[in-house]
Amino acid sequence: MNSSKEGMPWLAVFPNYHLHYGIDQLYFNEPFLSYLAVPAIWMTAVIFIFISWYKKQKY
């Protein structure tokens, strides 16, 4: 992972970017909850897509 946030700002779309910097925040005893928002959104979206796919397969 690039240690500079300015190098590739488009990486902020992916959850691994936020997890990486969230772990850095934990390491330095700084607030990290803001970094959990994007992974939570991705997780919710994936679960929703899986449920809708499963319902289509069932009927």
Rank of each mutant, 00 (worst) to 15 (best):
I41V: 09
F32N: 06
K58Y: 10
P9R: 02
S3K: 09
D24A: 14
N29W: 14
G7Y: 00
H18S: 05
M8Q: 08
S3R: 13
L36R: 05
Y54N: 00
I51W: 15
K55F: 12
V38G: 00
S3V: 08
N2W: 04
K56G: 06
K56W: 13
Q57W: 08
I49V: 10
N16L: 11
N29S: 15
Y54T: 06
I23N: 13
M8E: 07
I47F: 11
K55Y: 15
I23P: 04
F32T: 05
D24Y: 07
F48N: 14
I51Q: 14
I49G: 04
P9G: 05
Q57K: 07
L19V: 13
W53E: 06
A12R: 01
I49L: 08
Y27V: 11
I49W: 05
L26V: 08
D24L: 12
F48L: 15
W53S: 05
W53A: 09
S52G: 03
I51C: 15
Y21E: 02
N29M: 15
Y54V: 06
P31Y: 09
F48P: 07
A40H: 11
V46K: 10
F50W: 13
L11F: 02
F14K: 09
N29L: 14
Y27M: 12
W10V: 05
K5H: 06
F28Q: 15
